[in-house]
Nucleic acid binder design. Structure first.
Lengths: 201, 201, 201, 201
DNA sequence: AATGAATGAGGATTCATTCAT
DNA sequence: GATGAATGAATCCTCATTCAT
């Protein structure tokens, strides 16, 4: 083939299809419960292609995790910059909700992997928890004055409530309206506003 | 053997040992990631004994789920009766934290199964979500006046935050002190108190 | 218990129930496809009772086989005594049909075990084949003159046709009327009568 | 490797080897009594290969059944075309004998499955019984005049006698000479010729 | 870049059998 | 006489992975 000619897109075609198929399937089942055959079949490629592109099942899962973490963090970081810290939190929660609805597998994977003590290192998602809470803390600091010891619990609570309730509402679509859920999660912030001194700029 | 000494107990011994071994193992891994061999070995019985006592792996998991749900609901129902609704909520959250710390497998299993749309009905844990939120709503109603549409989201948020953060804190013991987490979750309630009309007894 | 007092009947109660349950189940499945659990459950006794009464599954199967063989041979021997050899053959075939209809498991077991070369000894059913063919040959000898070499093939054919078609007709009850089948099997004898010299008494 | 030498064939090699190994083993034991391990070992491939090629043990057994049914019916259909109906029947019986001797597993499987009422529909072998008897009836009709009601019983008897005696003679090779058995089975036809009006062409 | 065939380790489950009571 | 609990070998099957093409 002539160098520089058409190429590029086609190259990672199967890779992307595998990626998406895996995300889809991992949205409702644990990684152990999803087989490589299923992923390959859903992507319309052969099983060997999974190994050609990702090397192993674990690697595929890790890449999904990392991809999602990157995407989420990128956007949350942008939203955190809003001048109004309350508005920033609201937008962040809204985005998290949308994100989890769009990619249920991320929430699923994070929740699961976050709870496993034995698995090796776990950069990605432990890092994610740390990164998100750090970001939340930064925004909260701009809103109210918190004692050092309570910062992480508060941030974790918001993170957990958002992650869990978002995931939940993406299943029970009818009962848990997006908007109402966002408002409910923001109640934690309202609670802070009512009980802590405002940050004096 | 000395007469009158310990004995008798032995009867359903293996069943209980299996139950506990399974709870232990399911605390940190998804059911699919725990093998029947592992459970049997951990309980110190043969693999066949699992099937003699439970019929199948799924049934064992289900029974754990049901057992936990019953135990949790029983205690929460008691605590909800406290005359002071705020205190009731606080005790309930505290108990939930302790419970999840003591039996991490429950939180793990509930979270996972709650997210699976395809599994057939799932009385136990779907029922659990409904039961817990119903109970929370009853207590909240005694505290503040909520619009019908926001009740479930608020209750779900508290439930999710408690479940997730409790589970989280039982892994990262050092960083997330029990007491602080309870206070953080209660912020949602503080938020309600600050923004909604009190219930007029 | 006083010797000579009431006893007898009750003693083999479970044994008989097991025997009948096993016959029933073995009527439609190979021994390997029927479990001791199933037999015990069908008999309404515990699994241990099978071993108490029969020692092993194989022994139970063997006893069924022997019991059936004895019963069948006893009656066939009587019927073979009829003065009219043609009538004797007819009665024998009729009885075989009834017998197989009543106890499908015998036909099933015989057919299966007859075909296994590797299984040890096999008194019962190999003996049965020999006994039945020997009996048939005796009666045939009274009817027509056969060369030595063709005796066994002819007797085997009648035996096989009867056993197989009887078993078949007990499944497809509607299509294969008892009477017609008997007549069809007797055609072999008619064939002999038409092509061989009659026995001169 | 020498160019042009044997090669290529290899492709579905394992599948065929499994097929043959299974036929061999099923010749003397019921499917329940033959394990997948044994089949795989006999074929010289790994257990997984059985599942890769056939999906399940049942499917493997079914395919053997169907393959045999096809092969048998094909040849019988040819032989049935002989102008002389008696000769046609003789050839058909001879072929059936050879076939059963060559592939004892077919007779074994057919007999067993034909007798199971509970198994779902069972195209293959029930179809086989129907097909063979239908074919036999067609030939018989060219030979003698039969009442409608007796056609199936007569055909079934011939089928059963052939199947069973053939299977039997392939075990007791010494006692049941091929030729004699064929003649014995043809006696049924002789019986017909002696007792029914010939078909008037 | 991709695949289909093959594998073997491991997983859930069944089952004949043993044994203390 | 009878049973329930327990077992471990064996069975069917799944699955992540490898490799020649």
């Amino acid at each position: 083939m002539l160098p520089g000619a058409r190429r590029r897109v086609r190259t990672t075609d199967s890779k992307e299809r595998l990626f998406e198929a895996a995300m889809e399937l991992l949205g409702s089942r644990s990684p152990e419960a999803v087989s490589v055959d299923q992923i390959a079949a859903a992507a319309g490629v052969s099983k060997g292609t999974v190994y050609y592109n990702f090397g192993s099942k674990d690697e595929l899962v890790s890449q999904i995790l990392e991809y999602g973490a990157g995407k989420l963090m990128h956007q949350l970081t942008q939203l955190a910059k809003d001048d109004d810290p309350y508005q920033a939190l609201k937008s962040m929660i809204e985005f998290a909700m949308e994100f989890v609805t769009g990619y249920p597998s991320f929430a699923q994977l994070w929740m699961q992997e976050q709870l496993q003590s034995d698995k090796s290192s776990d950069f990605a998602q432990t890092a994610l928890h740390r990164q998100v809470t750090a970001l939340l803390i930064k925004v909260l600091d701009r809103l109210v004055h918190l004692e050092e010891a309570e910062k992480l619990p508060v941030a974790s609570t918001i993170f957990g409530a958002a992650l869990f309730t978002a995931r939940m509402s993406s299943t029970r679509r009818d009962e848990l309206a997006h908007e109402q859920v966002v408002r409910a999660i923001l109640l934690t912030v309202d609670g802070l506003l009512a009980t802590r001194p405002r940050t004096t700029n």
